[in-house]
Structure formats: structure tokens, C-alpha cells
Simulated assay, not measured.
Amino acid sequence: MRIWGKFFGFAIGFMFGRIIGGLIGLWLGHLYDKKSAQLSGIIGKGANRQALFFNTTFAVMGHVAKASGQVTENDIRIATMLMDQMQLEGEARKEAQKAFNEGKASDFDVKACLKTFRIISMGRRELLQMFLEIQIQTALSDAELDPKEHAILLTIAQELGYSRSQLDELLKRWQAEFNFHRGGGGNQTSISDAYDLLGLSESSSDQEVKRSYRKLMNEHHPDKLVAKGLPEEMMELAKRKAQDIQAAYDRVKTDRGMR
């Protein structure tokens, strides 16, 4: 409990105004203590948010991987690849592996885990979407989506405030991103995949193309995501996502002859 503001407020107030001054000082000190506690809580949450994002990501990944009945070699490869991309070593890698294994457990309470994550994340949309996209990547690591995997992804999406249609749109965009990578990501890549990655169609106007590009780049800007709670180890993932968006936009611009 914070009492120093009250103590000094009362003491100073009493010196200048006796009892009345002391009471006024006590009240002002109370306001100071309250504000100080709020600020401390915000800072504490900010420090914990990155650790929670880190652990929740790998725990839920383990849960998603187990959804189809068993964790496959491909599931483990995706988790390992993610750890490699984040350059996790030593204790940090052990923590990620521990969280992944906890998520695989039959008694893992994914809803409780996600509720805590959403609260600590303070509803930051870009952060929640980045988290959901990582889980989508896990589920689609074998290029197929098992009905049980889709059901769990829907649970995750809804717990984070996303509808079924929003989840399906993200699934479509991720599949397009997978195809985009497989095609090399350049001008030889299917133009339809480039449009899908941007969440657009070939009938979209140039203005809609620009608007969607700016929105997606804003949502996936690495520095912005880290400031909102994305662990710095995961910045590389955000950078790659932003690069894919940029490449898809360049592909569409070239096809349309846009400046």
C-alpha cells in the first residue's frame, strides 16, 4: 500500500495550516499515491506483457498442434523454426519448449489462458492479430486444415474478439502468403495470391489497393508491435510479414501500372 504521499501531504499541510491544512495535505497526498500506483501498474503490465505474449504463443501453439490427435514432426518443425527465427538460445529456448509442452497437455485450459492474455494485452488489436496469425501458421503448417484444428482456431479467434468471418479472411490471406512464398514472392508469383494476401480482388480500385496496403503495413509495423507488447525476439516475424505485404503490393502495382 502506498502511504508516503499521504504522510508527507499531511505533514506539510499541518505545518502551514494546522488541522485544516493537514487534512487538505492528506487528501492531496492520497491523490498522489493513487496516481503513482496506477502508473506503477501500467509499467508493470508493460514489462509483463512481452513475457506473457512469449509464453502464451508457444503454449497455444502446443495446444493447436495437438488438435488433430497427435503432435506431428511437422508441428515440431514449425515450432523449432519459429524458435530459430527468434534466435532463442539457452534459458529462453527452454522456456519456449516448456510452454509448448504445457499446451499439449490434456488439461490445458486454453480459454483461461487466452482470457488472461487478452486482458494483459489491453485489447491491442495489432498484437492480438499477430498472435492469431502465428497460431494459423501452426495449424496450416502441413498446408491442410483439420476440422479439429479449425475448431480450435475459431475458439482462439473468438476469445480474442474475432468473428468466424474474420478468421476465415485471415486463413485465406495466410494461404495466399504461403503460395506467395512458394512462388518466389516476385513478379512470377500468381497475381491472385498477391491480391488475396492484401485482402483484395482484381476488381478493387487503385484507391482500395493503396488503402489496404497502408492498413496492413500499419498493423504489422515491427516497431509499433514491439511498443505494444510484442517480444523483441519476435520482431523478425513481424519484419517478414511486412516484407510479404510490401512484395504483394509491388506485384499488384506492377500488374496495374500504378505509381
Rank of each mutant, 00 (worst) to 15 (best):
E144S: 15
D33N: 06
K241T: 12
E233L: 08
E232Q: 13
Q50K: 15
F108Q: 01
Q85F: 11
S190W: 05
R2G: 02
Y32K: 12
K241Y: 03
D109F: 06
W4H: 02
G69D: 03
G123R: 14
Q97S: 13
G90V: 02
L132W: 07
R2Q: 04
V110T: 12
A67I: 14
H63S: 11
G229V: 14
D244G: 03
E177H: 02
E149I: 07
Y32G: 03
A112W: 04
V209K: 05
F180Y: 10
E89K: 14
R18I: 00
I119L: 14
Q188E: 14
A242N: 04
K224E: 03
E202M: 15
Q246R: 14
D193C: 09
T116R: 14
R93A: 00
K66E: 06
L230M: 14
F117T: 07
S40N: 05
F117K: 05
K45D: 13
M61F: 04
L39E: 15
F131H: 13
I119D: 13
I24P: 03
M217V: 15
S204C: 09
I134M: 09
D107Q: 07
I156Q: 06
L39G: 03
L160I: 11
K6S: 04
I20H: 14
E232C: 01
Y162S: 05
S203F: 00
V64P: 04
S121A: 15
S141L: 07
I119N: 13
K104R: 15
Q70A: 15
A96H: 00
A247Y: 07
L39W: 10
G257S: 12
D84T: 01
P222E: 06
E133Q: 11
G17D: 03
A242K: 08
K98I: 06
Q97T: 07
G41L: 02
G123I: 05
E219Y: 05
N74P: 00
T189L: 08
F8E: 02
I119A: 14
I120C: 04
G183K: 06
I43C: 00
E236Y: 08
S121T: 14
I120K: 06
E208P: 05
E232L: 10
P231S: 09
Q97R: 11
F7Q: 03
L127Q: 08
A79I: 04
W4Y: 05
S204W: 10
Q158T: 11
G21I: 09
Q70Y: 06
